[in-house]
Computed example of a mutant assay.
Amino acid sequence: MSSDSKLFKDALGELGGVRPLVQERCVALRREDMPTALVSRERRAAATRQAGCEMNPLSGEYLELVVPWDPLAFKRDGVQNGVYRNLRLGKYTVDARLDLHRHSVEMARVAVVEFVRDCIEADVRCALITHGKGEGRRQPGLLKSCINHWLPQLEEVLAFHSAQKWHGGMGATYLLLRKSARKRQENLERHSRRR
């Protein structure tokens, strides 16, 4: 017996012994045994699916499908109207691009999260995601709908809007991203020297 094993057994002995954890059986509840809140939540979910919404398998939330020709638009509180207008009009230089054509929903989700993280690390402020409109598909606008659902959940995204025609129109989205910690510190130092 190694010295480590002996030390471990001695330590266990000082604690008064070891007992195995009690495992409770998992039993599937019958429909009539379900709590009222769970039943009402399932009823709301069924009603939402019938109203034209799709279950998002990634987050467990409901994804409202976007019409392929509808613009995407989002702005967090604190983003100046002029800044948002310039983003919407495509006046900022696009420093990074992500093309999601031929991606599955799961591949797109992973790619979007990695893309936003990489943009923040590289101090990119304006980026473009090309997702397509999804016209002529069995589920029109699925990736576009996912982008519309995911981007507000990422705190690094300050605003987004459907792109201008020369950048892909309704099949692409501009992103305005938060400054990295390093850029914020540089701005703070630059502005404090002026005083």
Rank of each mutant, 00 (worst) to 15 (best):
A122I: 00
A11F: 14
R125T: 10
Q164K: 12
L151Q: 05
E24W: 07
G141S: 07
L63G: 03
V157F: 02
H161N: 07
N187Q: 14
R193N: 11
R182E: 08
G60F: 07
V39I: 13
I147P: 08
R195G: 15
W69M: 15
H191A: 14
K75Y: 04
L12H: 00
V83T: 12
G168R: 05
S104D: 04
P20D: 08
A46D: 07
P152M: 00
V113W: 10
R195Q: 13
H103Q: 09
D99S: 06
R85Y: 03
D4K: 15
H191Q: 13
S59W: 08
H149G: 03
Q80I: 10
L58I: 10
A108P: 06
G16N: 09
I147Q: 01
C146F: 14
P68E: 03
V94D: 02
K9R: 12
K91T: 07
I120Y: 00
Y92W: 11
V66D: 00
G16H: 00
L58A: 01
G60T: 06
H149T: 04
E54S: 10
P152A: 02
L72P: 05
P35N: 12
N187V: 07
L29F: 08
L12D: 07
G169D: 11
A181Y: 10
L175F: 01
G136W: 04
K183D: 15
A163P: 02
H161F: 08
K133C: 08
K91G: 08
V110I: 03
L63M: 14
V110P: 01
A159R: 05
R76Q: 11
W166R: 15
V66G: 01
A73S: 15
V79E: 06
M1H: 07
R19I: 03
A37C: 06
